[in-house]
Nucleic acid binder design. Structure first.
Length: 310
RNA sequence: GCCCAGGUAGCUCAGUCGGUAGAGCAGGGGACUGAAAAUCCCCGUGUCAGCAGUUCGAUUCUGUUCCUGGGCA
C-alpha cells in the first residue's frame, strides 16, 4: 500500500508568530520550511510581507519564498506544483517538510487539490470583466442563473469575481463550475497532515499588528515601495495591491496623507487577520495552540511521526 | 467660588415638540475550488452620567449631585 507523505502544517493569522514557531519545530525535527503565503513569494517585497530575514533563514531553510517577480502571474495551481516539488525534494533528503503560512486557499489547495488541471483563461476572464464594466455585475449573475443555477445560488450577485470565474469555467470546459465542484469536493487527502493553528487573544494580536506596521516603517518600508516603482512595477499590479503596498502607493501618489495611510494599513491588516481566523476556524482537525506552546507542539509532532498509517 | 456649554454604542456625534434611540468610524460573524494580503455577504440593547420630582409614561421637562471643557474671579 502507498503511504501518504507526512507533513506538518502551521497556519494562523498574520503577525501571530508562525515563522518563529515553524523554525522551532524545524530545528527540533531536522525539518525545513515551505512557505504558504501568496505575497512572500514575490521578490523585492520583503519588509511589507514580513518575510523571514537572513538570520531566520539560516536557522531553518525556507522554500517557496522570494522566487516570483511582482509582475508575474501566480495562483493556487502553480503553488501546488511548486509545493509538491519542494516537499518531494525535502523527503528525498530525509528532511521533515513544515508548511507554514497564512494563505488559507493555498493550503486547502495543497492538501486537497483543485478541480481541474488547467489555469484560468485570462482572455476569457478579461472579456467578462469588460462586460461587467459595461453591463454591470447583475447582468452577468442573471446569465449565470440561466446557465448554472446551482452556482448562481451560492454566489452573491455582487461577487463579480466569482460570477466571472463561474462563467469562464462554463465557457472553457463546457461544464458548469458547480458540477466540477461537486465531483471534486475537496475529498482527496493528498498528504498525511498534522495541522497546527496558532491563535491568541484578539486584542493582543491587534496590538502586535499595530506595532509591526510601525516597525516596517522604521525599517524603510516606504523606500522599498519606491524601489519597486523605480524598477517599473506599477501600483496596478496584483502584488502591489496587497496590504501595505497599496497604502504606500496611495501615499506616494498623493491620494492619502501619511497618517491616514498608516491608519488604514493597520486597520486593513487587522481585518485581514480576522478573515484568516474565519478561514482557519472552519478547517477540520486543527490543533489550536498559542504561539508559545512549542513544547506541546513538539510532543504532538513526535507522536504524529511515530505512528504509521494502517 | 461664580457663569456658560456639554455628559447618548468602544470613539466622534445626531436625535427624540415626553411614547425607552441612530449615523460615521472602530469592531464582530460568515462565505471562499487556479487573481485569495483578493473578492463578497450579514450584524447596532446602549443603566441616553447619578438621584429625586412632574407625568399614565422621562433619555427628552424641572430640581439637585457628580464629571469634563471653556470663560470670569
Amino acid at each position: 500500500m502507498d503511504m501518504k507523505q507526512k507533513i506538518i502544517l502551521i497556519c494562523g493569522p498574520t503577525g501571530i508568530g508562525k515563522t518563529h514557531f515553524a523554525i522551532h519545530l524545524a530545528q527540533a525535527f531536522d525539518g525545513e520550511i515551505i512557505g504558504a503565503d501568496s505575497m512572500q513569494i514575490y521578490k523585492y517585497m520583503d519588509i511589507g510581507t514580513a518575510k523571514p530575514d537572513a538570520d531566520e533563514c539560516r536557522m531553518a531553510p525556507h522554500h517557496l519564498i522570494d522566487f516570483v517577480k511582482p509582475d508575474q502571474a501566480f495562483d493556487a495551481g502553480r503553488y501546488i506544483r511548486h509545493a509538491d516539488a519542494a516537499i518531494a525534494a525535502l523527503v528525498s533528503r530525509a528532511k521533515l517538510p513544515l508548511i507554514a503560512g497564512g494563505t488559507g486557499f493555498y493550503l486547502k489547495a495543497l492538501l486537497h487539490g483543485l478541480f481541474r488541471e488547467r489555469t484560468a483563461d485570462r482572455l476569457v476572464l478579461d472579456r467578462l470583466e469588460r462586460e461587467r464594466e459595461s453591463k454591470g455585475a447583475k447582468a452577468l449573475h442573471d446569465r449565470l442563473i440561466q446557465m448554472d443555477p446551482e452556482a448562481a445560488k451560492r454566489i452573491h450577485p455582487n461577487d463579480a469575481f466569482r460570477v466571472i470565474r463561474a462563467l469562464e469555467v462554463l465557457e472553457v470546459t463546457g461544464k458548469p463550475i458547480s458540477s466540477h465542484q461537486q465531483s471534486h469536493g475537496f475529498s482527496e487527502e493528498r498528504y498525511d497532515t498534522l495541522k497546527f493553528g496558532l491563535h491568541m487573544e484578539r486584542s493582543l494580536l491587534y496590538k502586535r499588528i499595530d506595532l509591526r506596521v510601525d516597525l516596517m516603517i522604521s525599517q524603510g518600508f516606504v523606500d522599498e515601495v519606491k524601489g519597486l516603482l523605480e524598477r517599473g512595477y506599477s501600483c496596478e499590479l496584483k502584488s502591489m495591491q496587497s496590504i501595505g503596498y497599496r497604502h504606500m502607493c496611495d501615499y506616494l501618489k498623493g491620494n492619502l496623507p501619511w497618517d491616514e495611510a498608516i491608519r488604514l494599513m493597520k486597520r486593513d491588516t487587522r481585518r485581514y487577520a480576522k478573515r484568516q481566523f474565519t478561514w482557519f476556524r472552519s478547517q477540520k482537525e486543527m490543533i489550536w495552540l498559542e504561539p508559545s506552546e512549542t513544547k506541546k507542539a513538539e510532543q504532538l509532532v513526535s507522536e504524529f511521526l511515530s505512528t504509521s498509517i494502517s
